[in-house]
Design a protein around this nucleic acid. Structure first.
Lengths: 150, 150
DNA sequence: ATAAATATTGATAATGAGTCTCAATTTAGT
DNA sequence: ACTAAATTGAGACTCATTATCAATATTTAT
């Protein structure tokens, strides 16, 4: 039993969920994989290894792995495509409130410069970028504090 | 005729496209909108204003507005959900090559600290973040240079 | 080890965003 | 106004993801 398995089983126990064969198979393939993957690729690999897990179960297991802290959703992704007007000032930094959806836009040339110089180290030519942070805005953060206290 | 209209018409002309009524309506609503929006919201607003543009046309017009430089896609979004393993070292910064799809992951605590202090100014509590940059990796960048020369 | 209670699974239908098709319409240039 | 070419609208379609539900597997208590 490896570290990942321990963590996953622990999470499942805490949540009154069961460590089943399909979940075990999925966990194993996830950690035999390049770091980045999508669900379809994962499903293909499971079948190529002659394991039998339904597509539905693979999809269902993703949120469990996320909640267990073993994987996370990568490269910010929302259900719908989002657009924004391009103003004279580009706002590359977005603070998105998980609670009320409010978006605070910030422009920081300092942050941008830092980013560009980091990319330069890898000889990577940046054409566009965006920085997305999720969390709680001031209002929602306060609200949540109150609720926790009461 | 306002500035946006000029830019859009200019782009359309350059591309041998026509400035039609539906495109005019869409342009207007886009710039009467909060900065961030999705297509469905846009479509609703058009209908609420008793204008008549089909959903298909609204979808079709988005890439034109993007190419004209008036709007851009916000908050990185791919067709499929992407996941990544959470390793002991979190890699919050991704350099994604537009050409070959290669992903370079970088961890910069300095960049992270800078980001956190910027959020702090807005009393925003960051729970998670990711920095995505698109561009060309070293190889593809070189390749493209050569092709341009030849 | 067995049974009862409960969670999980697989197969498939359903959903929802976004794209494609194509006949009918509109546009730009003469 | 006429013609050629681009655009539109309506709805069919795709593809990722989610929901449904009967059948199955797991856990816990015995």
């Amino acid at each position: 039993m490896n570290e990942h398995e321990k963590i996953f089983i622990d999470y499942l126990k805490r949540s009154d969920l069961k460590y089943t064969r399909p979940r075990q198979i999925i966990l194993n393939i996830v950690f035999n994989n390049p770091s980045h993957f999508d669900v379809e690729t994962l499903y293909d690999q499971i079948r190529r290894n002659n394991r039998d897990v339904s597509r539905a179960t693979v999809y269902r297991t993703m949120p469990l792995l996320v909640k267990s802290g073993l994987i996370k959703q990568s490269l910010r992704c929302q259900a719908k495509d989002q657009y924004e007007n391009v103003s004279d000032q580009d706002h590359h930094l977005h603070l998105v409130c998980n609670n009320c959806g409010k978006i605070i836009e910030i422009n920081s040339s300092e942050l941008e410069n830092r980013l560009r110089s980091l990319a330069e180290v890898h000889k990577f030519k940046i054409l566009d970028f965006s920085i997305g942070a999720q969390g709680l805005c001031r209002k929602c953060s306060n609200k949540r504090d109150k609720e926790t206290k009461s």
